[in-house]
């Protein structure tokens, strides 16, 4: 039983570390700021999630596991808020994403079409 948990948490920790590296490699490769947001959200969700699950499996049913779960919940609640604030602030500052398909017809929610600068 001990051995199985060890192997499973190995897999989770390696996957988590791998997703962290993938996310930041994506941040280096992506062409503009809005696409980098997507790469960064991999670190915040998959990388963080897999690492925390791996650590919880090692910690067992203790206070440490409870603290780890609190950390995971806080990151999952706060990271979309930060990402959304970042995207909104960038758009309002006049930074336009490089697009292949613009399905909005120039209309962005909450903004007059004429005020696009």
């Amino acid at each position: 039983m001990e051995q199985i948990i060890d192997i499973v948490s190995w897999v989770f920790l390696i996957a988590g570390g791998l997703f962290c590296v993938i996310g930041t490699v994506g941040m280096m490769r992506m062409p503009d700021m809005f696409t980098r947001l997507h790469a960064a959200s991999i670190v915040d969700t998959l990388g963080m999630g897999f690492l925390i699950v791996g650590m919880v499996l090692q910690a067992g049913f203790t206070l440490v596991a409870a603290k780890l779960i609190i950390i995971a919940a806080l990151i999952l609640l706060t990271s979309p808020v930060a990402t959304h604030a970042l995207a909104q602030a960038a758009l309002h500052a006049g930074l336009r994403p490089k697009l292949d398909h613009d399905e909005t017809g120039g209309h962005i929610a909450g903004e007059d079409a004429s005020s696009n600068s």
Binding site: F34, L37, H38, S41, I42, T45, L46, L76, S79, P80, T83, H84, A87, Q88, L91, I108, A109, G110, E111
Partner: peptide, 13 residues
């Protein structure tokens, strides 16, 4: 926003 690949940029109504 939490799902990688999509980000909500602006919400109105």
């Amino acid at each position: 926003t939490l799902t990688p690949g999509t980000v909500s940029v602006e919400v109105e109504g």
